[in-house]
Amino acid sequence: MAQQPLIHYHVRWRPSGHQPGASQGLVAGTGDQLRSVVPLRDNPDPRRLDLRASSRDPYENIWVRDFNLNSALKVIVLVDTSASMGYIGKVNRLHVAQQVASQLALSAYRSGDAFGLYAAGETINKECMLPPKANRGAWLWVNHHFPKIQPHGNSMDGLFDTVSYLPQKRCLVFLISDFRWPDGKLKSLLKKLNHHDVIPVMLQDPAEIDEQPQRGIAMLRDTETGNQKFVWMRPALQIQMAEMRAQHIKTVETASRLYGNKPFVVRGAFSSALLTEYFMRRSA
């Protein structure tokens, strides 16, 4: 697990917590961004003495520099565990979700951030719930708990309930799902989460997109509804299908852009470097 590089996420907003961390925060404290120059009386730390400001003062007051605290973030992972997440194509979808979550847990700990995790399918999964804390063993907790999750249920309504468990202050939220949701569900969830920085992590499997069999007949069973469909794969159908997939990604993208972020699409296996790259692009 630790073989992959850490995820260097970066946010463009200032977390307001008092916990020291890696992001430029809002409160005064030890940091690398000058906040103001204050009298020694207000910030009695002679190490931050501002000689130039003190010597320029005709009243001969002593001034010290005040910095913004580099605060810790709260990283929350929301995992959709509806039945479609149990799909095993070229990769095990839930296993990919586990990789994302545990790598995020490790990275969060390394940058001193709190990590929390909530899983929900039709209802919220109370067995798999980690409140956001700076937690050294969070990634192990993830690896321990994820294999126990049985994806079931044909909706994601439980995710709405997780919102109330989340901290009131702004967090970095990763929403891991395949987003095979009915129209409008993603929009209303994002609306509920809109005071957080939500990054949809969209899991896709090559076996359901572009690495489908070229031709032949088969029976397909919807993992969520159990509906069966007889399909005759042929090139004409592939073209239609590619359009449908593009349409799906576009729908998710439109909804999430409305609330600030592009979705991060994981095709097949997860690569943490790509997620770092995603944050670099976002900050640029």
Partner: peptide, 15 residues
């Protein structure tokens, strides 16, 4: 006919 699980068929093209 051999059956495969598929995550979602709701947006499968009409054929």
């Amino acid at each position: 006919v051999k059956q495969f699980n598929f995550p979602g068929l709701e947006d499968w093209p009409k054929d």
